[in-house]
Simulated assay, not measured.
Amino acid sequence: MELDNPSVIAEARAVFDRYEDALMNNRTEILNEIFWADPRTVRFGITEILYGIEAIRGFRASVKAYAQRVQRKVHITSFGQDFACTHLEYERVGTGLIGRETKIMVRLPDLGWRVVSAHVSLLAGQDPGRN
């Protein structure tokens, strides 16, 4: 299996950039399109735990506007021709809060690249479980 094929990384980056543009411009229809339309799709957000595309679409329908953010670091790894992970470190505009986002993407027959799992979180000030 080939790791980090430049053409696969470029394809994953194009999906990543399209998603970011849609997020910053409240283009919910594009955000929904990028996610795999399947009950097995998962999205863990800042305040929500969503299993299945219907739950994800329901959440997105409730959002009036997404928090603006500035990318600090993007890291993409590909595994073979059809699997990639994107990782984003970002700063929320106006708050200085640091966030992280991971997307697992798969190239699906007849659909192209789709996000099958995503996790978004904000960096906590402290970890009360760590001594």
Rank of each mutant, 00 (worst) to 15 (best):
G58Q: 09
A14T: 11
C85H: 11
L50M: 12
I9S: 07
G112N: 08
I53Q: 06
D17H: 11
I76M: 02
R107Q: 10
W36A: 02
R114S: 10
A14R: 11
Y19E: 00
V116C: 08
Q68T: 05
V115Q: 02
F83M: 08
M1E: 11
A12D: 08
R72V: 07
R27F: 12
P109I: 13
T28I: 15
I9G: 03
E91F: 11
Y19A: 02
R92N: 02
G96D: 04
N32S: 14
V8D: 01
Q81G: 12
M1C: 14
D21F: 15
L122Y: 07
E11R: 14
H75Q: 04
W36E: 03
E20M: 12
A10P: 04
V116N: 07
V42C: 02
H87E: 13
N26I: 10
E29G: 07
F35M: 05
W113M: 07
I98P: 03
V63H: 02
S117F: 14
A22D: 06
A124Q: 07
Y19G: 01
R40V: 05
D110C: 09
G80V: 14
L111C: 14
L31K: 00
I76S: 01
Y51H: 10
G96R: 01
L88P: 00
A12M: 13
R69Q: 07
E89G: 06
S62Q: 09
V93N: 06
D4R: 08
G99N: 06
R107K: 15
V106Q: 09
I30E: 12
L97A: 13
A55H: 10
L108I: 15
G80Y: 09
I53S: 08
G52Y: 08
S78R: 01
V74A: 06
G129C: 13
D17T: 12
V70E: 07
I46C: 00
S117W: 01
M24T: 09
D4S: 14
G112W: 12
A61I: 09
R60V: 03
G96F: 04
K103I: 02
L50T: 03
R43P: 00
F44T: 03
M24I: 08
I34L: 10
V70Q: 03
I49Q: 05
A14G: 11
V8Y: 04
A22W: 02
M24F: 12
M24Q: 13
L123Q: 13
P128K: 05
P109E: 15
D110L: 15
V8S: 05
A55D: 05
A65G: 07
D17M: 03
T95D: 01
P109A: 15
G125Y: 04
K103Q: 14
G52D: 04
R72L: 14
A22V: 05
R107G: 13
A22R: 04
R18I: 11
R40F: 10
G52S: 06
G112D: 11
F83L: 13
I30Y: 03
A124R: 04
G94C: 14
A65L: 06
L108Q: 12
G112Y: 13
F35I: 02
K103D: 13
R43L: 08
R130A: 14
R18N: 12
R69P: 00
